[in-house]
Design a protein around this nucleic acid. Structure first.
Lengths: 200, 200
DNA sequence: TTCATTATATGACGGGTATCATATAAAAAC
DNA sequence: GTTTTTATATGATACCCGTCATATAATGAA
């Protein structure tokens, strides 16, 4: 059936978005091709008109998740100055609402564990996604040494992701909340320190 | 065949140990009952003489992984004073060798992502395991307020796990190494701060 | 209105895996 | 040495899932 012009691309995009959600909700192993297609109102057969394999879909889904993550970063940062933008991002990231919104949250928190054991396109997309997010943070740090900034940004990113990840795993909600709070404060203190030492 | 006395318990223990390794290496979904049994030199059929289900095995495997983790903690801590013990643990945890030894490493780092989507015995075992490790850290912190210590310990734990987790995900080994280094320093600085503020 | 095109649907195949009923064999007890 | 016990093995069943060959139907072009 000859659909309007770019119908296929739109369908593909919808499939990828559904996969990006399902991936963060269920992980790469439990994500099922037929399930994702059904979420979009299609049947499993047509899948291979869009993707060469499930692996290819996973790769595209990881890319999509990072695209959303970068968008959220840009949105949170706005046109504020570097330090304010970073602090706002930390507040948004290390929060109860991010903890509770796994399926639309940052792929680093949701998938780091899985991706360490993954090969293929998804792994590669994850790596470039991480680099891009770390780069976004590093570019807002005050120091001159680019490698040092990247390493610091990576460490900040790690602590943000770790805090949300553990907050998701802990059952006691009070502990989970205060754990987030402590981590948020600690991370913002590190940011403050690096900005203030560069100020003087 | 009537084997020596406690043969069955020993077999079970060997199966659990193999499962604890396989779990950290492959994750809960890729862990296969037959595979674990084969690792111990048995066939899949006998499995249900030892465990009610794969879920039950996962629960036991998580417990075992935490048992190993606590042992490593105790071993690292030795009978040193609280602060030195904590610092030694951080050095051991946030290290390249821990990053590279996933299959025998801390289950928090290896499994936090998976356990957020898991139900049943494994999830529960993971929760009590986390609480126990956090408790071990909290008991070595100087403050008086127990809830505050637990939250701080949780936040420290989160940042340790996050650092190792991200170091595993990043492909560039130089970045991975320096990311660990930065995180290690930051975590130890937090520990130093809390001890020094309690000293005065 | 008919034809040609092509996105999607149907249905099947093969491989993997959890589970379980039954068989086997080895060693302890007599 | 024979019998009894029981840990493990064999083999089957049922289910889920990725993949793909083929069929269908909807629509723009003629």
């Amino acid at each position: 059936m000859r659909y309007p012009e770019d119908h296929k691309q739109e369908t593909r995009a919808r499939v990828v978005k559904a996969a990006a959600r399902s991936l963060r909700r269920q992980g790469p192993d439990k994500l099922a091709v037929a399930g994702v297609m059904a979420e979009v109102g299609l049947t499993h057969g047509g899948f291979y008109a869009h993707f060469a394999s499930k692996e290819a879909l996973l790769g595209a889904a990881v890319e999509e998740a990072f695209r959303q993550g970068r968008k959220r970063f840009a949105l949170t940062a706005g046109d504020q100055d570097a330090r304010t933008a970073l602090e706002a991002y930390v507040d948004m990231y290390v929060s109860a609402s991010h903890r509770d919104g796994r399926e639309l949250g940052c792929p680093i928190t949701a998938l780091a564990g899985d991706m360490a054991r993954q090969a293929g396109p998804a792994r590669e997309a994850f790596d470039t996604g991480i680099k891009s997010l770390i780069g976004g943070i590093a570019s807002r740090l005050p120091g001159e040494d680019e490698a040092a900034n990247t390493a610091l940004a990576g460490s900040l990113m790690a602590e943000m992701a770790g805090a949300v990840s553990l907050a998701r795993a802990v059952a006691d909600p009070t502990l989970s909340d205060s754990l987030l709070e402590q981590s948020r404060a600690a991370i913002k203190a590190r940011i403050a320190a690096v900005f203030e030492s560069s100020d003087q």
